[in-house]
C-alpha cells in the first residue's frame, strides 16, 4: 500500500469524474455519426491511394464493364437516328413496262394521286433517269455506248404522312396489280427490318447493361472481400473494443462507393471518347445520304448519372460482401 503513487486525481481528466458509460456522449449522436462518415470516407480513400496500381486495375475493369453498354447504347441511338433520317421521304418506286409511254404514265400517276394514302407522285421520264445515272460516277462512260435509252418511265410515289407500314404494304400490293406495271420496289420493308433489328438491339443493350452491372457488382464485391479478409485482425480488434458492425463496415462501404464513382467517371470518359471518334465518320456518312446528319451524343444527364449509378453499385457490392464477411469474423 505504501508504494501507491500519489497522483492528483482531481486534476486528471481521466479520473475527475465517476466512470461513464464508455465515454459515449449522447448529446451529439448526429455530429459523431457525421464525423465517422467523414473519417471513413477519407480513410478508405487514403487506403485506395496507398496501393494505386491495384486500385487503378480494379477501377479500369469496372469502367470497361460500364462503358460497354454505354457505347452500345450510343451506337444504337445513332443507327436509329440514321434510319429515321433515311426513312423519311421514303418513296415507293413503280417501274412501268418499257412499252408504256408518257401518257400512260400520266394516267397511272393521276390514279395514284387520287388515293388518300398517297401524298405525291413524281413521274420520271427515261431521259431524266438517264441524266441521273450519268451524274453517278463511273456510269457516264458506259452510258455513252448505248444507242437508245433502255430505261422505262418510273413513278416515285410518296405515301401520305402517317400511313403505317402495313398501309404502305397495301398500297404497294395495289400498285403491283395496276396495268402496265413492270415492278414495284418498296424500300419500306428495309425500314421495317431495321426497326425490328433496332428493337432486338435495344433489348440486347438492356440485357448487356444488366449483366455488366452484375459484373461490376462482383468485381467490387470481390475486391472488398479480399480487403476485409486481409484486415480480419483489425476488424477483430475494433469489435473487441466495442465497435458496432455498422462502424466496422463503414470504411469498406465507402471504398465500394469510391471504386464505383471512379469507374463511373472513367466509363463516362470512355463514352465521350467513343463519341468524339465517331463524330467524323458519322458526319461523312450523313453527308453522303441525307445531307445533314450529325452524331447523336449521349445526353449529359445520362453521362452524369453513370458515376452516380456506379457508386450505388459499388456501395451495394460492398454492403452485400461485408454483411456476409463480418458475420464470419464475429
Amino acid at each position: 500500500m505504501s508504494t501507491q503513487p500519489e497522483l492528483p486525481l482531481n486534476e486528471s481528466p481521466l479520473l475527475a469524474e465517476t466512470p461513464s458509460r464508455g465515454g459515449r456522449t449522447r448529446a451529439r449522436p448526429v455530429a459523431s455519426w457525421r464525423e465517422h462518415h467523414g473519417w471513413s470516407a477519407s480513410a478508405s480513400l487514403r487506403r485506395l491511394m496507398s496501393r494505386p496500381v491495384g486500385t487503378l486495375l480494379t477501377v479500369a475493369v469496372m469502367a470497361i464493364a460500364l462503358a460497354l453498354p454505354l457505347t452500345f447504347y450510343l451506337l444504337l441511338g445513332n443507327v436509329q437516328k440514321m434510319g429515321e433520317a433515311l426513312g423519311q421521304n421514303q418513296t415507293v418506286s413503280m417501274f412501268l413496262q418499257p412499252s408504256q409511254g408518257g401518257s400512260a404514265a400520266q394516267l397511272v400517276a393521276k390514279k395514284l394521286r387520287d388515293r388518300p394514302d398517297v401524298a405525291a407522285v413524281t413521274v420520271k421520264t427515261p431521259q431524266q433517269g438517264m441524266d441521273e445515272l450519268a451524274k453517278m460516277q463511273g456510269f457516264s462512260g458506259a452510258l455513252h455506248t448505248l444507242e437508245d435509252n433502255p430505261l422505262p418511265f418510273v413513278l416515285e410515289v410518296l405515301p401520305a404522312q402517317g400511313v403505317s407500314a402495313d398501309g404502305v404494304e397495301r398500297l404497294v400490293t395495289d400498285m403491283r396489280g395496276m396495268s402496265g406495271v413492270d415492278q414495284v420496289q418498296d424500300s419500306g420493308t428495309w425500314r421495317q427490318r431495321l426497326e425490328a433489328l433496332l428493337g432486338v438491339g435495344q433489348r440486347a443493350v438492356l440485357i448487356l447493361a444488366v449483366l455488366l452491372a452484375l459484373a461490376v457488382l462482383l468485381v467490387v464485391g470481390n475486391t472488398i472481400r479480399v480487403d476485409i479478409a486481409s484486415r480480419s485482425e483489425e476488424i477483430g480488434v475494433l469489435m473487441l473494443v466495442g465497435a458496432s458492425r455498422a462502424f466496422v463496415r463503414r470504411p469498406y462501404l465507402y471504398a465500394g462507393i469510391w471504386y464505383g464513382l471512379f469507374s463511373g467517371v472513367l466509363a463516362a470518359g470512355f463514352a465521350v471518347l467513343v463519341e468524339l471518334s465517331l463524330a467524323d465518320p458519322v458526319a461523312r456518312l450523313g453527308h453522303a445520304y441525307a445531307g445533314k446528319l450529325q452524331i447523336d451524343v449521349l445526353p449529359p444527364w445520362l453521362l452524369a448519372s453513370v458515376p452516380v449509378a456506379a457508386a450505388v453499385l459499388g456501395w451495394l457490392g460492398a454492403r452485400l460482401v461485408s454483411a456476409w464477411q463480418l458475420r464470419k469474423a464475429a
Partner: peptide, 24 residues
C-alpha cells in the same frame, strides 16, 4: 483514441483524454 471514436466523443475532448491516458 479508438474507444472514444467508437463512443462518438468530440475530437477536442478526445485528444485531451487520450493524452491523459497516455500520460498515466
Amino acid at each position: 483514441e479508438l474507444p472514444l471514436m467508437i463512443g462518438g466523443m468530440a475530437p477536442p475532448e478526445r485528444s485531451k483524454r487520450v493524452r491523459a491516458a497516455l500520460e498515466k
